[in-house]
Nucleic acid binder design. Structure first.
Lengths: 334, 334
DNA sequence: TTGAAAGCGCTAACAG
DNA sequence: CTGTTAGCGCTTTCAA
């Protein structure tokens, strides 16, 4: 596969391989004349460095391993994109894996990830098996946990508190004068962050006087169809419901469609809100009140932490925890 | 980073390193007794193989590099997920990159990908720069082009013909008795596959008697908001329009919402169809007629081709081209 | 600023 | 089925 090596480049530039190596790693430490000769040789030979050889010799690669529940989830897709963009600027490569919400698989994925002696590992959420923690601790690789804040943190963390999202949703509905509240959730048993939002919602609601709050859930992944079904169940079981928060915008969209079909007026009779601010939410009819998690920012900040850590590898690692917060977008549906 | 090596494992199992190596690469070629001893040693030492060393020695890694326009796009997310699942079963790792529809970046991404001596490279679409083609040809790495069929193919390809999608959409609307057709598209200048769908649509429509067909487009990425805007423009410029095909379901969703707001009856006055069968399409009100591209299947087939090629590395490489087709889902909106 | 030398941890003939 | 022996292509002291 690899034909041209650093030796070939060195020979053509009439320099030693170590100088060429230095040219790649610390360009400033090489004289202008040498740099130019090397650049010319690379060009002429169409040299492609072998990063595996480099990683092996350096005992560490420029790979950042990212493990998310699913890329099909728009939230994580956004974060992965941002991470990739920011890390790419530093010539760091992303190696992606997904657990499909099977936390049990994470350990194997981490083990494989470590086989590449990654420069850093990015994990979603805070709940990881003891073995996973040990593996990562022993490897001494920088770790960033994303999309969830709380305790305990392994190393660095970037995200927000999901119970606060639940609180914010409940507060908003209460403020709109709603008293019979429902949280509609999908796959709450697997999606711990959604479950925490649900919990936070119910807690906050029940602290208010004369307010009831319940959770209705469905085991399937979130989708508009599940949302429509959940609304049906909600109306059946709690005919007086006047405020609904959904575990995400897909569910909320299904609720909107189902309300249209059943003639339930939003927001007059029922206030609806979602989570995610997905691409359709602002354009919906009525437009959807929702809470926007800063998926992009999470990726950017995680990348920043990694890059900073890599820059001060010798120094005392600082255990950064970044709360990115979230934003409530009040629109027509409430 | 890496402490425990294959030598440590060998020592503890009282075998030679090469036997341990064999144990990983060809488990069947190792005796049961040896296997057990090795397994025990691995367990006891918590051994994590160094894949870079392995890749260097073998002159090829178990990395498959995938380059897509964007993971935020549900289509590619689905394919990437399937690829990852299938490749993972063979202990092949996915290294993901995105071009954000800047074809110009692809060459650099391919160059970097090749630095890892990947087992295969997966590219989206068929249009690649001459330099990219040369790089890949010289590297002799298996290449799979996905999500588009046509000519020319570099090596292997899995996808479908996007002009056929356009044809199918036009035929469907014509069959429903529609005569004043419009294709609403987003970012057609960057998304070549959407552009080909638009072309196919117009071509097929104009072949029918008494039928008109036009394309209206917007430079921004596809979203429901863009869809709503495009419908406004469509109604303004072509008040008689009775059939609309959209470059994807996001656009179509925006069209549905905007029609609700403007009191345009779907499908009575206007037939609407999309492309993608996204998660909300079946639950929409009215439910959305759409064309479903087999994103998952594309990933699975691409993985299958890669695995097959890897299994017969010596043999004459067969230039597989797989047409996955697509499915028209007739629902209420038409 | 550049070069020589010694591996990094593993695979891959080949021999036994 | 197992062991011996050379590297894979690069980085990294250490000297010059």
């Amino acid at each position: 596969m690899q034909r041209v090596t650093i030796m070939d480049v060195a020979a053509r530039a009439e320099l030693s391989p170590s100088t060429v190596s230095l040219y790649f790693r610390k360009p400033d430490a090489v004289s202008a004349a040498a740099s130019e000769a090397i650049a010319r040789a690379i060009e002429a030979l169409d040299y492609v460095p072998n990063l595996m050889a480099g990683g092996l010799a350096a005992a560490s690669s420029r790979v950042v391993s990212i493990i998310v529940p699913s890329v099909r989830n728009a939230f994580f897709a956004e974060t992965v994109t941002a991470l990739q963009d920011e890390l790419g600027k530093q010539r760091l490569q992303v190696m992606l894996s997904h657990t499909e919400y099977k936390e049990h698989d994470e350990e194997n994925l981490v083990r494989t990830a470590l086989s590449w002696a990654p420069a850093a590992v990015v994990l979603t959420g805070l709940s990881h098996s003891a073995a996973t923690r040990r593996l990562l601790r022993d490897s001494k690789v920088p770790v960033v946990e994303i999309w969830e804040l709380g305790s305990p943190t392994m190393d660095m963390a970037v995200g927000f508190h999901h119970d606060q999202v639940g609180h914010a949703a409940a507060s908003h509905l209460l403020q709109r004068g709603r008293k019979r509240l429902l949280f509609l959730g999908a796959r709450l048993h697997e999606d711990r962050r959604a479950a925490r939002r649900a919990q936070g919602f119910v807690e906050a609601a029940r602290n208010a006087p004369d307010v009831t709050a319940e959770i209705i859930q469905h085991p399937a992944p979130a989708s508009a169809e599940v949302g429509a079904m959940l609304l049906g169940e909600a109306l059946h079981r709690f005919p007086n419901v006047d405020g609904i928060a959904c575990s995400n915008d897909h569910i909320a969209l299904g609720v909107i469609f189902e309300c249209q079909r059943s003639g339930v007026a939003i927001p007059e009779r029922l206030s609806v809100m979602g989570f995610g601010d997905l691409s359709f939410s602002a354009a919906a009819n009525p437009s959807l009140t929702t809470i926007r998690p800063p998926g992009d920012l999470i990726g950017k900040e995680a990348a920043r932490l990694i890059i900073a850590r890599l820059a001060h590898l010798g120094a005392e690692p600082e255990q950064a925890v970044i709360d990115t917060r979230f934003t409530l977008l009040h629109r027509q549906s409430s």
